[in-house]
Nucleic acid binder design. Structure first.
Lengths: 204, 204
DNA sequence: ACCATTACTGACACGATGTCAACAGTTGCG
DNA sequence: CGCAACTGTTGACATCGTGTCAGTAATGGT
């Protein structure tokens, strides 16, 4: 007898390992909620052991933040379509809502996960709120400009922006973060109508 | 020497114990988020030991459901002001929003906690969604009646109801579930304007 | 005074997290 | 080629919160 047991440990570059873990997490979230995402389950979907996880990420919340990473930026690019209102402001608003909805449509599960995680972890919460807060701030400023230009009737810009921005986030994660997703067109339609009527009193 | 160590265990009626635990949890939530609510911390604020908790509640999620309990009903009573639209429908909507906002104002921290817990526990999530779903359903029906009566222009009632109801929940928990709370009047104002404009195209 | 009932708890098993010292591929250098 | 030095990787451990259960201590009825 013999056959020395061959240990056979695979080995990758750090970047490859990170990417492998992120991919596993992304896959996981595509059909299970964030609350079920454990380090164990994610690493079981890679060729690595559980402790390796902590080499690349501090904890599962930071993993999520890495996963979402650029989406925040993408969202803001979309919002600028409206905020930098070169064109007709109403057309701009419409285009911005379209863009934002598209981002949520594409990254629905990840954004749902961030939203869920923000009630669990203080750091994620802070980042998530900060993102929405930027939106609120920018929207409020824009509303105030429109009021000053007498294209809107006067009202409390800050609170209105808060309500509408939170609505977007909630409704969009709801519509696209769970299965089956709501048809994109009817979601966009609905948001357009509410925003434009609420702000300008105009139907699309 | 002697002095037999006197064990001294206090004793209450089951109802008193339950109430004591609920009160402790309520107090806890008044200045700390749900994610920090552990069985340990709650029971430390009572004269009971941690295991006793499980005599009265299955887990911390069920505790929360008991704590909120009747609030769901209260909300629905408020909503009926609008849904059973005896009076002027616009006045009815206004009154309903007033009532709903008042409930969130009073029970802000508890409702925030439920909302948070719903991302953690499947059972809480189901109950929470069911509550909002009832609202959506009722609102959608009402909208359809108004459209049929030609008091509103036609649009997708179901999706509009979804967006507006989720907005209410999110915005109201945000406004009243964290400190310092937003002034009630400006919150109600904002919601009124958005709802009435979105549905009727009318400013308050 | 006694016992049946019931409120209560110490001690345990479990599951998930996060850490660390040791191990094993890989790479470069003589 | 052989041998360090480096670094990716992991087994084993400590910790924390949860949920359970057998056993203990008050209580009320007789």
């Amino acid at each position: 007898m013999s056959a020395a047991p061959v240990p056979q440990r695979r080995r990758r570059s750090p970047d490859a390992a990170r990417a492998e873990i992120l991919a596993a997490a992304h896959l996981f979230l595509s059909d299970r909620p964030f609350r079920e995402l454990t380090v164990d389950e994610v690493m079981a979907r890679t060729g690595l052991s559980r402790p390796s996880f902590y080499v690349y990420f501090r904890d599962r919340h930071q993993l999520l933040l890495s996963l979402v990473g650029e989406i925040g930026g993408e969202l803001f690019v979309m919002a600028e379509r409206w905020l930098k209102g070169g064109e007709d402001p109403i057309e701009g608003a419409r285009a911005a809502l379209h863009g934002i909805a598209a981002v949520y449509f594409e990254h629905g599960t990840a954004l749902k996960a961030i939203s869920d995680a923000s009630t669990t972890d203080p750091e994620v919460e802070a980042i998530y709120r900060a993102l929405l807060e930027r939106f609120v701030e920018a929207t409020a400023e824009h509303i105030e400009e429109e009021i000053a230009a007498e294209r809107m009737l006067p009202f409390d810009a800050r609170e209105t922006a808060r309500a509408l921005v939170w609505m977007n986030d909630r409704y969009l994660t709801e519509a696209f973060g769970t299965l089956p997703p709501t048809p994109l067109a009817s979601v966009v339609d609905t948001l357009e109508r509410i925003w434009l009527r609420a702000l300008y009193g105009v139907s699309p």
